Amino acid sequence: MKEYVSFRGREIRIDELLFFLAFVPYLIIGMLWTTMFPMPDFSHAIAKAFLIFSFASVFFKKHWNIQFLAVSFSLLLIGSLVWLATSDTGVIALALLIMGAYKIDARKIIKTYLLIVLLIMILAFFSSMIGIIPNLQYVRPGSGIVRNSFGIIYPTDFAAHVLFAYLFSAYLYFEKKPWLFSGLGVLLVAFLIKFSDARLDAITLFLAILLFLLIRFLKGKALHQAAQLAPFSTLLAFLVTYALTIFYNAKNGFLHLLDNVLSGRLHLGKRAIEKYGLKPFGQVIKFFGNGRSTKSVLHYNFVDSSYLKFAFVFGLIFILFFVLLMTLQAVTCLKRQDYYTLAVIVVISINSMIAHHLIEPYYNIFAILFLANFSFRQVPNAIEKQSALESHSHV
């Protein structure tokens, strides 16, 4: 089967071309939905329709290895069962993007993500400043602090875009320009606290700076030893989130204080578990949260934690499988001495304990990169070992 096509004198892999034909419109539409620009409801269907190209790209891959088959089959099966239980195709869409990204250079995908996300963020920011779309401003009760969303649907969603855009930019370029990205990161932390009062994203962004500095300047065995527990960050974050939520009791002084610090998230999570329970393949729940309007929500019930929210809507089986994928990817990163990718996984894992963007590619692009090509991050001896493993697993 033909693997390349000529375009303006260049040879382009057909599977790569088909993937980006799906990914680019899907990302643009998804990203626009996080802004205050008006979007028609049918655009969701258009975005998902483009994913047929991502599925088609699979048949132009040179090889399918065992990892690809296991991940793809499992996600498609889980996604189909979620669809039957809830009529939601979100997991199937995620599976198609993950399959399409197989063997494609992760840098190309991340650079495309950064180009689209940053352009739309800049457009939304300046549009909100000149009144084309609203800059929603919320006042935090008690302190009176004004929180700006700058053209995005909510201040924390704006902050999440800033966090992830910085995280993936630094992921690609921090090694060469550590002080530039450290300084930029500190400025962004200050900006998020001053103008959006987005504490979670400011803290995790600062954590990313510290981890990248540690990797950049701590070398050899010391770095490897410091990273030993990092592969289990997603699993630990998942378990801690559930333990704190399930055992939450307002009469417990520590848990009550922690719940106040987390703006009532433990209480909301515990109430949702008691009301809805956790189903294997999800359920239809109408979550009411803030966003798109400064009007107060009368029956607020939104569950922010990714580990909880996606367990409710897509089921416990899905979230367990996703946590497993992230953990296995992190273990592989440690073996490859790929500490930058490992740091990104740690930051995402911690942020997802409180925020709900874990599997949304227009925030967290790593959600679709489990099967992508990360060879640019591997040290030479790790590349040789990986090539040897892949040569035995092709089918």
Rank of each mutant, 00 (worst) to 15 (best):
Y138C: 10
I133M: 12
F195A: 10
P38C: 14
A367D: 04
F7A: 06
V82G: 03
L320V: 13
T35I: 07
N364L: 06
L118R: 13
V379G: 12
F42I: 12
L244K: 11
D201L: 07
F366H: 05
V91R: 08
I285F: 04
M99C: 14
S233P: 03
A190V: 14
G277W: 07
K177A: 08
A106P: 00
L371F: 10
P25I: 08
V24T: 09
L235C: 03
G30E: 03
A85I: 03
I246M: 06
L278T: 05
K335E: 10
D338L: 06
Y26S: 04
P141Y: 04
F23I: 02
F288I: 05
F195G: 08
F312S: 04
L75A: 13
F321S: 12
S306M: 05
T89F: 15
S387D: 06
N249Y: 13
H44L: 13
N249T: 14
A56R: 08
L163S: 07
L172S: 02
A227S: 14
G9P: 09
S196I: 05
H357A: 13
A70S: 13
Y102R: 11
K270Y: 14
F68Y: 11
I345C: 01
S233H: 05
T241A: 01
L278S: 01
F247H: 09
I285Y: 01
S263M: 07
R140G: 00
G144D: 10
F126V: 07
L266A: 11
A159W: 01
A226S: 15
F195K: 15
